[in-house]
Every structure is written in structure tokens, then in C-alpha cells.
């Protein structure tokens, strides 16, 4: 078990793993995981000469679990990552995200092009694709709608020995561990708040500005067995990337790529991080006084 440290940044306690020396890589997990998701990647990256920083994102693992929905807006969580890296003296890390962590990584990449080196998104594509989902993706995302009802979703998911939750999760990911994680005080509500803050039908009504382009070199990886996120989300993400874009599809893996295909993921990460050059930022015409 890797040792975790804790910092207080952006109004929340964040637990994180910090291992190795070299160019920094930040690993961002998704729902309902924690930095434990990356247990197969961390040693490989450390061995490959990287400094690996893997936080438990707010609401998960050993980090703080605010109970208000508003505490889980995407921008707030991007700010958690910014604040954590600043605190650790990291200026321009590689960012690797899975599931919600990938969504955060994408957003971080286009909001803060000068604070990211390479971007790797696992399973989840650019939010621009997800803003106009196909009806198939909407059907696959039914649970996101189900998670919207404060108190009610919690009770229905927990009822009769977490029966519904077990059916939604199947035997994927760390399924035998999630129940114990989510039984910690406030953990289930905190996890669901990610969906409530960012995936409510109301949030879809909000006008989205045009997304700034991703300038960093970006790699998208998608598992052919993913039942929650369809391939379109990742395959169509390239149009939001101005830097070099690469898409990899792993046949024998489902949604939890870091666990289902650890060797392939490690190989892709080690072969990609730090190898490409970013696109140049658009030159803004100098304003004349």
C-alpha cells in the first residue's frame, strides 16, 4: 500500500500519493474509485522515470467529502488539481484521467494550456462530444439521470444490500471494494454529487461557450467492452484537439481500463508521455493603444 499524504487546498482536504522522481504525472480517477485505481500504473511510471501524483479527488477515498452539490462543479474540481499541483511545486504536469478524472483532465487541458504537458484520457472523451450525446449514449447514461435525486437515489441504491448498485456496477472495476468505500460517512452522497452538479438535465440547458482547443498532445484510450461510455465519445474527441491526437482502442477491456488492461495502458502511457510537441497557441493580435 502506498503511503498517502494530505494537504488542505481550495477549501478541502485532499489525500494523495506522491511517488518517484522525474517529470510529474498526475493521475485522476473517476467514480467510485480513488487513487487505489492506479495501483498498477504507479510503480510502472515510477520505474519509467516519472514522479507520480495520484490524488483522491474530493468526495472519494480519504479526501474531504462536502455534502453540498455545489461543491462538485467541474471548475471547482479543476481548481483542486491546480491548487494541489501548485502546492507540490509542479508547474506543467502530464495529466492522465479515467472516467470523471478524464473529464476533469480534458477541462484542465483546454482551460490551462500552459499548465499541462501531455494529456491522456481513458474511457471518457472531450466534454464537447458529451454535450450533444447520441440517443444511444443517452440510453447508456441512464444511471446518471437516476443519480440526480438527493436522498432518494441514495436510499434506492443502498436498499436490500445495495442490490441496485450491484446491478449497475456488475463485476467491473473494484466492485468488491466499492461498497465498503461508499459506506464511509457521506461518501455515497459525495460521489453522486459529481453527477448532480455536472450531469443534471438543467446543466444541459446552460449555454456552453465554444470550447477552447486542446493544445497539448493528447491520447485517448477506449475499451471495446465499455458499456457506459460509447466509442463515439472518444473517437470524435480529436476535433477538439489542436495538438497531436492519437486514439487507441483496446479490444479486451471494459470501462475500467487501468484494471482491465494494466500492461497495455502502462505501455501506452510510457510510450506517449513526453514524446510529442504541443500545438502553438494562437497568436493574439497585439492590441494597439
Amino acid at each position: 500500500m502506498m503511503e498517502k499524504k494530505t494537504v488542505h487546498v481550495n477549501g478541502v482536504d485532499l489525500a494523495y500519493v506522491d511517488e518517484g522522481e522525474g517529470p510529474p504525472v498526475v493521475l485522476l480517477h473517476g467514480f467510485p474509485d480513488s487513487s487505489y485505481l492506479w495501483r498498477n500504473q504507479i510503480p510502472a511510471l515510477v520505474e519509467g522515470g516519472f514522479r507520480v501524483i495520484a490524488p483522491d479527488l474530493r468526495g472519494f477515498g480519504d479526501s474531504g467529502k462536502p455534502q453540498e452539490v455545489e461543491a462538485y462543479g467541474m471548475q471547482t474540481i479543476v481548481n483542486d488539481v491546480v491548487a494541489l499541483t501548485m502546492e507540490l511545486g509542479v508547474r506543467r504536469p502530464h495529466l492522465v484521467g479515467h472516467d470523471w478524472g478524464a473529464a476533469i483532465a480534458w477541462m484542465y487541458a483546454f482551460l490551462m494550456p500552459r499548465r499541462i504537458d501531455h494529456l491522456v484520457a481513458l474511457s471518457v472523451g472531450h466534454p464537447g462530444v458529451f454535450a450533444t450525446p447520441s440517443i444511444e449514449q443517452r440510453a447508456a447514461s441512464w444511471y446518471m439521470l437516476f443519480y440526480q435525486f438527493p436522498g432518494v437515489s441514495e436510499e434506492l441504491l443502498r436498499r436490500n444490500g445495495w442490490r441496485l448498485f450491484k446491478e449497475i456496477m456488475g463485476r467491473d472495476g473494484d466492485h468488491d471494494r466499492y461498497l465498503r468505500d461508499l459506506a464511509r460517512p457521506g461518501a455515497l452522497t459525495a460521489g453522486l454529487n459529481w453527477y448532480r452538479a455536472n450531469r443534471s438535465p438543467a446543466s444541459e440547458l446552460r449555454i456552453t461557450r465554444r470550447f477552447p482547443p486542446v493544445l497539448a498532445p493528447a491520447l485517448g484510450i477506449w475499451g471495446a467492452g465499455d458499456k457506459a461510455l460509447l466509442e463515439e465519445g472518444m473517437a470524435a474527441s480529436g476535433k477538439f484537439v489542436k495538438g497531436p491526437w492519437r486514439y487507441e482502442r483496446i479490444e479486451d477491456a471494459g470501462h475500467w481500463l487501468p484494471l482491465d488492461a494494466p500492461d497495455q495502458v502502462n505501455k501506452l502511457l510510457l510510450g506517449f508521455l513526453g514524446t510529442e510537441r504541443p500545438a502553438h497557441e494562437e497568436r493574439r493580435p497585439r492590441r494597439r493603444l
Binding site: N160, K166, D176, L179
Partner: peptide, 12 residues
């Protein structure tokens, strides 16, 4: 001890 059952793989 109910959680031990459900967390250990209990199925309704």
C-alpha cells in the same frame, strides 16, 4: 454485522 454480508457478496 449486516454490512459484512452485503459487502461480502450478499445478493437479494
Amino acid at each position: 454485522v449486516e454490512d459484512c454480508f452485503w459487502d461480502g457478496g450478499g445478493w437479494e
